Structure formats: C-alpha cells, structure tokens
Simulated scan of single mutants.
Amino acid sequence: MRGFLFHRLLALLPVLFVVSIVVFCLVHLAPGDPVLVILGNDASPGDIAALRQQMGLDQPIMVQFLHWFGAVLRGDLGHSLFLDTSVMGLFLQHLTPTLALALYAQLIALTLGLAGGVVSAWQHGRFTDRAIRALATLGMSVPGFLLGLFLIFVFAVQLRWFPVVGYRSTNNDLLLNLWYLTLPAVALGFRIAALIARMTRAVMLDVLQENFINTARAKGVPERLVLLRHTLKNALIPILTICGESFAGLVTGTIVIESVFGIPGVGSLIVDSIERRDVTVIQGVVLMITVCYVLINLAVDLLSYFADPRLSVEGAES
C-alpha cells in the first residue's frame, strides 16, 4: 500500500510541473498588460516603467517563472494585484461555494444515475429501459448552461419555487443554502447522472451474464438482492471511477454554471480575474484547481485499490 501511494504521488510531480509551466506561459503570453489595466491608458511612461519594475514584469519571462515557481514550492501563490490579499486566501474563500455546489450536484447525479442504471438493467429491453436510455441521451446532449436557463425560467420565474440567482452560506441555514443551490446543482449534475446511468446499465448487464448470478437465482435469492448485493456490488469499480472523474470535473468545471446563477465560487473568481487581468490570481487559482483535480483522481485510485482485491494483489506483487 505504501509503495502504491508513493509511486502515485511521485507520478504527480512532473504533471504539476508541466501544468505550472503551461499556466504561466498562457497567462503571460496572452494579450493585454496588467500594468495598463491598473494605471489606465493615460498613464505616463515613467509610471508604467516604475510599476512594471515593482511587479517584476521587466525581467525575462524565465526569471519571472523561476521566482513564481520557487514561491509556489514554499506555499506562496502571491498577492492579488487589485484586491490586496493573498491568492491562497481568495481561493479558499471562493472554494466553499464551489465545493458545496459540486457535492450537491454529485449527490443528485449519484442518486439519479444509480437508480436509473439499475432500473434500466432490470427492465432490459422493455419500455422503461428505452425511456431511461432516451432520457440519458438527452441529458448527455443538453449543455449545462442551457438546462440551467430552462430551469430558471420554469421553476424560478414561472413557478417561483426557487430563487433565480444567488448564494447563501451554510453558516446561516443549511436548508436555505440547499434551496439556493438546487437549480444549479440539477443543471450541473444532470449530465453526470446520465453518464452514470449509462455506465451502470452497461456494467450491470455484463455482470448479469455471469454464472454466479444464475447460481444465486437458482438458489432462490430474491431478484432485489441479486441486483443490489451481487450485481451492483461487482459493478462498483468502473462506476466508482466514473463518479470520481465526474466529481473532479464538477469541482473544476463550474465556471459557466456559477456565472449563470451568480454563485461566488472559484469559477466566478477566475472570470473576474481574467476581466481585470489579475495575473497572479489566474496563475494561482488555475494551479490549485489542477492540484484538486489530480488529488481527487488519486483518491479514486486509492478507493479502487481497496475495493478490488485483484488490484491489491497486483500492487503487492509489483
């Protein structure tokens, strides 16, 4: 186990190093000068040169990268050029709404996806199976922002069951927070639910063809237990992988949904930082998002390692 974890962590280092190079280059080679954004186009050349020297932008790009990456290794992501606060503090402040939205969306996706996949496999070839597959295809096809606008129009504007936009902290009222997050969570999680449903159906249909399933049925095991205890349990590994990857995608891909529903998460922070050309925030937040994505995938690998004894044996042998 320790060897497996050590090799997985060791493999993450070159990935994060390459990502840091790409992020730094994309931000600094993009059009636009943060100095002009701060001072305005009417600033004098002397003021521009002084601020560029103060920010270290007058140095070669390689020197700038080495200074920035050295600070990152010490846990210092820098300070915002406009908000006069640390990038790490901004990231943690905006991470709470994003995590709350991602967890709620993942819960909805798991509930709908697993239930839909199990029922579809159980009713294989029947009308219910075809209806669930059609709904899953629709869920895979409709963009999240379009579904979000539809949900706002129907359930917020017409029926007035939910607020149009906004966010409430969990410190005030958990139910109020869930009420505000329901529509964006559905819009974000519906596509993931469709993916989980299709994967669950496909894997369960394969497991249902195994001999031990026929043996369980021959022994008189109720169909409900055959589906849940024998079939679904043996189909959890690929489903777990899909859930982990989808959750990592939810955490890192909420930019559009947060913009549509006015949620002050990490996505909104990135959009605002791009608009004001706050390069230190863009670099630091994108790098932290990548770290979160990589760590979530590592956690999924560890869960799969524990869930499947065959992986444990292979890891011990290697």
Rank of each mutant, 00 (worst) to 15 (best):
V186S: 14
S169F: 10
N172K: 12
V164G: 04
I196T: 08
L195M: 06
V164F: 01
Q158F: 07
Q158W: 11
A193P: 09
W161V: 14
W179G: 05
L183W: 00
L195H: 05
A193Y: 09
L195N: 04
I192N: 15
Q158Y: 06
V186C: 15
F162W: 00
L174C: 06
L195Q: 11
V165L: 07
L181E: 03
T182I: 01
F190K: 03
A193E: 13
T182L: 07
W161I: 14
L188G: 13
I192H: 15
F190N: 10
D173K: 00
L178W: 00
V186A: 15
I192E: 15
I196C: 07
R168A: 07
R160D: 15
P184R: 07
L175S: 09
W179P: 00
I192G: 08
Q158R: 03
I196R: 11
R160Q: 14
N177T: 04
L181H: 05
T170E: 02
T182G: 14
G189E: 06
L188K: 09
F190S: 13
A187N: 10
N171T: 13
N177L: 03
V186N: 14
A187E: 05
P163W: 02
D173L: 01
W179C: 00
R168T: 08
I192R: 12
L176F: 08
P184I: 01
Q158K: 05
V186M: 14
V164P: 01
L188W: 07
G189T: 03
L181G: 03
Y167E: 07
D173R: 01
R168N: 06
T182V: 05
I196H: 13
S169R: 11
Y180D: 02
A193V: 00
N172G: 08
Y167D: 07
L181A: 03
R168H: 13
L159S: 13
W179M: 03
V165T: 14
I192Y: 15
P184V: 00
A194V: 00
R191H: 05
R168V: 13
I192L: 11
L159Y: 09
D173F: 03
L195W: 08
L174W: 11
G189L: 04
L181N: 00
L195E: 11
F162E: 10
L159F: 14
T182D: 08
R160I: 12
V164M: 01
G166I: 07
L159Q: 12
L183K: 02
W179E: 09
L178Q: 03
N177K: 05
A193H: 09
V165F: 03
G166D: 11
W179I: 05
